[in-house]
Design a protein around this nucleic acid. Structure first.
Lengths: 270, 270
DNA sequence: CTGATATCCTTAGGGGGTAAAGAGATAGCT
DNA sequence: AGCTATCTCTTTACCCCCTAAGGATATCAG
């Protein structure tokens, strides 16, 4: 369920995203005082998404959490799409932005990636917000600025940097999605990864008795222990994601290093 | 909108996924002859998703395309989740699986990645199928087998291979998502990326006049031309995705190379 | 012809998002 | 004080979704 952005009045959306102190101005208009606020609604919506998942995020649910009907929210927010945009930008404040302590870009990127990973697992619904067109909210820029600042340490040209950022971003998002969805599946079905596999595996044999002949390379890989996880205290799929994350990040960092070497930037760092 | 898998009767799901010639057996049961078939339904559903997007995929829409009501489908398919699983596994047959012609693993991986990229852009809805727990359908295994066969050429140990496959997979999926969602946004809003940016950009200045001070590194990057695209005939966001794809793939391949070097595998290839 | 069974339909129930209209509260103005 | 414009919030309603239940119809074995 990728949730797409609101596409109504662009000016109103931007004003909401970058709403600042001007919303605190003294009211002199007639009519009852607002019982809610954009902030309150966004916070409630984030709480719903955190606790019950993106699928459970409905205008009714958010309203209920605030003791209102669904329609009351429309006084403050143009629609659900815009609300999701606001949730997205709002929750991004949680991401750390200062990596000045890192010894070099490699350490900085690693720290940033791990912070992102933890963030996504804390708010898995964020992974379901469409990345088609950027939301252009303030915190999105704060996050970008932070990453770019780290990567300027590589000395790579700006155009290359932009792509490296994209690559890192997609990688982290992709693997975090897998881990998050695995958790979600476990919660939704009430079945652990191992339980799930133990019910599925015999069915697979039943339905594909010729598996080994049809997929020799995979079978060989399995015999070589590729699909065994050491730590049995962590759910299988989550651990797999975690290890892929660590290994993949290493691969990407090495790749960046190679790009630097090709550009003749091997000596300076940090 | 990530679409989650069906989680009903696991045996029935697996039987449907691996359904083979046994479904062609002669019928001797009473009752009217089936007017539909699982294949017909899956094909119709894929057509709907291809043409109108995952959001437009409803049981009604599929039924209508087949001249039936939504409920008629439930005779053949347990529910929407399972139908999506079937669609997913079915459409994967389009992916090429033979990369024996490739000169070495690097060329093979590159070819595979590009094939995947094209595939995802042909069927963007595939990117919205949850990857939480694998569907375990036959074609998913065929695809996996193909990738692993290519990567065995690196000589890396099986456990490392598994993670490399995961990294590549997430990378391709991630960037393809961006490109696909950008297309979708353009189609949905009837507004090109450039139009979109030209309406958004002045709003951003209006709402954040102090942008340059708040985000100095991004501003510097922009002045260095990081966000300019050369080819103006291609939509901006799609081109950005394409270039990030090319650059990121290079980074990952270099990273794999580095892993091989560390394992002392520099000479042999292919 | 009878009974069993399979296909497909209609109906209905419980979710969604949100447009429209109205009730009630509150400000400034006369 | 009363009036009126305006704002908040609710009710109702419409259209969409998935799918459970039950009924009509077609087709087989006996």
């Amino acid at each position: 369920m990728v949730v797409f952005a609101g596409q109504g009045d662009a000016r109103r959306s931007m004003a909401l995203l970058w709403r600042g102190a001007q919303s605190q101005e003294v009211r002199t208009t007639p009519g009852p005082k607002p019982g809610l606020s954009v902030d309150a609604i966004v916070d409630a919506a984030i709480a719903v998404a955190d606790e019950e998942g993106m699928a459970a995020l409905s205008m009714r649910a958010v309203g209920e959490r605030l003791g209102r009907t669904a329609m009351a929210l429309y006084t403050y927010v143009p629609g659900k799409g815009e609300l999701v945009d606001l949730m997205y930008d709002r929750v991004l404040v949680e991401l750390p932005t200062d990596y000045a302590d890192a010894a070099d870009w490699r350490e900085g990127v690693t720290a940033w990636a791990h912070d992102c990973w933890a963030f996504y697992l804390r708010h898995p619904w964020v992974l379901q917000v469409s990345q088609a067109r950027p939301v252009l909210g303030p915190n999105e820029y704060v996050v970008l600025e932070a990453v770019v600042r780290i990567l300027y340490g590589t000395g790579l040209p700006a155009a290359t940097l932009r792509r490296v950022v994209g690559t890192l971003f997609h990688f982290v998002r992709g693997i975090a999605s897998t881990a998050a969805e695995a958790r979600q599946a476990a919660a939704a079905t009430g079945m652990s990864d191992d339980d799930w596999w133990f019910t599925r595996s015999p069915l697979l044999q039943e339905v594909a008795p010729d598996f080994a002949e049809r997929f020799p390379v995979l079978t060989r890989m399995e015999r070589e222990g590729a699909f065994r996880n050491e730590d049995e205290s962590v759910p299988y799929l989550e651990q797999e994601a975690r290890e892929t994350f660590a290994a993949g990040l290493g691969v990407i960092l090495d790749g960046i290093e190679a790009a630097r070497r090709r550009a003749g930037l091997t000596e300076t760092a940090g």
